[in-house]
Write a protein that binds this DNA or RNA. Structure first.
Length: 526
RNA sequence: GCGUCCUUAGCUCAGUUGGAUAGAGCAAUGCCCUUCUAAGGCAUCGGUCAGAGGUUCGAAUCCUCUAGGGCGUACCA
C-alpha cells in the first residue's frame, strides 16, 4: 500500500519521498514533510511549496484528498482504493504481506553448548532468531536456520567428568572430589542412571571412557534441546557439529595464507589492525585448537556453501569475537561484509527486586522448559519478541511466572477471538460480506481498516531493520483499536453489518498472520 | 585504561531512522456489564527524554564532552 503511494510520488518527483504515518488520523493516511527540505533549494516558504504540490494532485484515483497543512502534505487514500486493497488482502489469506524478495540467507542462532537443557537466558536469542526467520521467509527470502553444535573442547571433557562423578556419587555411593567447575542438574542424574544401566558400573569409574561417555551424552542432551525448542515452536533445518569440521583443518589453514603465523609453537591469526586489539591464538603449543579455531573452520564451511548473506545471532558477551571472525573471513578470501552479526543483550534476572544469578553449581538454573510449562509457549514467545534486543533487559522471576491475563498476548488473542465470535453469530453469508464495499465508513472504522492494512509494511520494516519487536508492537496497537471499536459499535444488527464484518475480517487476518509470524496460533475462542 | 551497547513516567518497555501535542502495559485512583465474551472500554495521576554544549526551519533521535550502568578486553566456551 505504502509502496504504491511511494512509487507514485517517485514518478512525480523523480526521487524517493519520505512517507510517514501521521499520529493523528486527521492528517490523513500518509504524510510527507518534503516541502521543508525543498524550501531552501527553492527559496520559498514550506507552506507555499506544500500548497503547490498538494494542488498538483488532480484526479489520482488512489487519493481521496491531498492537502497541505502547516508545510506538511497530507494524503488521504480514497475509499475505493482501500476497499479494493482490503478485498485483495482477504483473497490472499495468510499470504497477505508476503513478497517475492530474492536472496539466500544462512541464519545461525541459539547454538547453545550441548551440555545441558536450555535455560531462560537462551529464550531471547531463540525467539528473536525464529521470528526473523519467519518474517524473512514470508517476504520471500530463502533462509536456512542453522544450529552450531560445540561438540569439541573443554566443555565436552567437563561433561564427561561431571557425568562420571555424578554417577559415582549418587549411584555408587562413593566419596568424590568435585572439581572447581562441573555440570549438575536433574538431566545429568538421569543420564548417569542411563549410563549405569546401559554400560554398567565400570563405565562410571573408568576415566579412559570419559570422552566416549561425553560424546554419547552430548547427543542425548542435544535431543533435550531440540525438544525444548520444539516446545516454543522453533525448528532448525541444519545442525553442524564443530568436531566434524576438524578434518578440514589443514586445508583451511593453508587457505588463510599469511593470515596466520606460528610463534613460540603457537599458531596465531593476524587479527590486530582489523578491529581487534591483538593477534589471537588459534592453536595452543600443545596442539589443541582454541574456540576461535572452531569458528574459523565453521565460517569457512559456511562460505563454501555459498549463501548470499549470513546472519549470526550472538549473545552480547561474544561481541569481542566479531572482529576476529571477520578477520578470518577476509583471510579466507571472502567478503566479511556478507556476515552480519546481531547481538542480543543479556537477560538479567531479578528475584524479589534483587539481582539473581543462575548458577550451575548452586543448582539455581531456571530452565526454559519450566517457564514454558508455567506460562505457555505463546506467552513466553510474545514477551520475548516484544523486547528490542539491543538493550539489556531485566526480568523478575516471580513476575515472569505470574504472567497470566496481564500478558499482552491475551489482549491480542482476545481481539481475534472476539471477531470470530461475531462472524459466527452473524446471519450474513460470507459471500455477502465479501461482496460488500467499504464505502462510507465512520472515521473510527476507517482508522481500524487502515491500521489492519498496514501489516505488509510492518513485516518488511521489522525484518529489514532486524527489529522484530515492531511486529508485536503493531499487533498490540491493532488489538487496541479493535477493542475500542468493538466497545463503541454494535456490529450484529447494524445497518452496515456486512461492511463492518468485512472490515473485521481484514483485522482478523492481520492479527492471525502477524501472530503466526511470531510462531503463535491465533485463537478463535477464549 | 581501551572497545562496545545502553540511560525515556514509580516499574518493564515503545517511539515510524531528523518531523506535527513524547506513547503503551503494569502499578495507583474513580467510573462502565438486563447490550455481539469485562481476558474489554473510559477517565485521572504520572516526564528537565541522565546532564551540558553544538548542528538547523525542527533534536528523545545526529556530533562533542561529562556522569552512571551492562558486556568484552583469555592459550574459557
Amino acid at each position: 500500500m505504502k509502496q504504491r503511494v511511494s512509487a507514485l510520488l517517485r514518478d512525480k518527483f523523480n526521487c524517493d519521498v519520505l512517507l510517514e504515518k501521521p499520529k493523528d488520523r486527521a492528517f490523513g493516511h500518509f504524510s510527507t514533510p518534503i516541502a521543508f527540505s525543498l524550501s531552501r533549494e527553492l527559496r520559498k516558504s514550506p507552506m507555499i511549496i506544500a500548497e503547490e504540490i498538494a494542488n498538483s494532485f488532480g484526479d489520482e484515483s488512489m487519493f481521496g484528498a491531498v492537502e497541505s497543512v502547516k508545510g506538511y502534505i497530507n494524503f488521504r487514500l480514497s475509499e475505493t482504493f482501500l476497499d479494493e486493497y482490503a478485498s485483495w488482502a482477504l483473497s490472499h489469506g495468510e499470504q497477505f504481506g508476503s513478497d517475492d524478495k530474492k536472496g539466500t540467507i544462512l541464519l545461525e542462532f541459539v547454538s547453545a553448548n550441548p551440555t545441558g537443557p536450555l535455560h531462560i537466558g537462551h529464550a531471547r536469542g531463540a525467539v528473536y532468531g525464529d521470528t526473523l526467520l519467519r518474517l524473512g521467509r514470508h517476504l520471500g527470502y530463502d533462509i536456512t536456520a542453522e544450529y552450531y553444535v560445540n561438540d569439541a573442547g573443554n566443555q565436552i571433557d567437563l561433561l564427561g567428568t561431571s557425568l562420571q562423578l555424578e554417577g559415582r556419587s549418587a549411584l555408587l555411593g562413593e566419596e568424590v572430589q568435585w572439581p572447581e567447575k562441573y555440570y549438575r542438574g536433574e538431566y545429568l542424574s538421569a543420564l548417569a542412571k542411563e549410563v549405569q544401566s546401559q554400560f554398567g558400573d565400570d563405565a562410571l569409574r573408568d576415566e579412559s571412557r570419559q570422552k566416549e561417555l561425553a560424546l554419547w551424552a552430548k547427543d542425548k542432551i542435544l535431543e533435550l534441546i531440540v525438544d525444548d525448542l520444539k516446545a516454543i515452536n522453533v525448528h532448525f533445518d541444519t545442525f553442524v557439529g564443530e568436531a566434524s569440521l576438524y578434518d578440514e583443518w589443514d586445508r583451511v589453514m593453508a587457505k588463510m595464507g599469511d593470515g596466520v603465523y606460528v610463534d613460540e609453537g603457537k599458531t596465531f591469526i593476524r587479527s590486530s589492525g582489523l578491529g581487534d586489539d591483538h593477534d589471537r591464538v588459534v592453536v595452543r603449543d600443545d596442539g589443541r585448537p582454541t574456540y576461535l579455531a572452531g569458528d574459523i573452520i565453521y565460517h569457512n564451511q559456511k562460505f563454501e556453501r555459498g549463501y548470499e548473506h549470513y546472519i549470526n545471532i550472538w549473545g552480547a558477551d561474544h561481541h569481542g569475537y566479531i572482529a576476529r571472525v571477520k578477520a578470518a573471513i577476509k583471510f579466507l578470501g571472502y567478503n566479511p561484509e556478507k556476515l552480519e552479526v546481531q547481538l542480543s543483550q543479556m537477560v538479567s534476572l531479578l528475584k524479589d527486586g534483587e539481582p539473581f544469578k543462575m548458577s550451575k553449581r548452586a543448582g539455581t538454573v531456571i530452565q526454559m522448559s519450566d517457564v514454558v510449562e508455567e506460562i505457555g509457549a505463546d506467552a513466553l514467545r510474545f514477551m520475548f519478541a516484544s523486547k528490542k534486543c539491543d538493550t539489556a533487559l531485566e526480568f523478575d522471576i516471580e513476575e515472569l511466572k505470574r504472567q497470566d491475563s496481564s500478558n499482552p498476548i491475551y489482549y491480542v488473542q482476545y481481539a481475534h477471538a472476539r471477531i470470530q465470535t461475531l462472524v459466527s453469530k452473524s446471519e450474513m453469508s460470507l459471500e455477502d460480506i465479501m461482496n460488500s464495499r467499504l464505502i462510507g465508513l465512520s472515521a473510527d472504522a476507517d482508522g481500524l481498516l487502515f491500521e489492519a492494512l498496514v501489516l505488509p509494511e510492518v513485516i518488511e520494516d521489522a525484518f529489514e531493520s532486524r527489529q522484530a519487536q515492531k511486529l508485536p508492537d503493531y499487533l498490540k496497537a491493532l488489538a487496541a483499536k479493535l477493542h475500542k471499536f468493538y466497545y463503541d459499535t454494535r456490529v450484529i444488527g447494524h445497518e452496515d453489518e456486512t461492511k463492518l464484518l468485512k472490515l473485521l475480517l481484514v483485522v482478523a487476518l492481520s492479527l492471525k498472520t502477524g501472530l503466526s509470524l511470531l510462531g503463535i496460533e491465533a485463537k478463535d475462542r477464549m
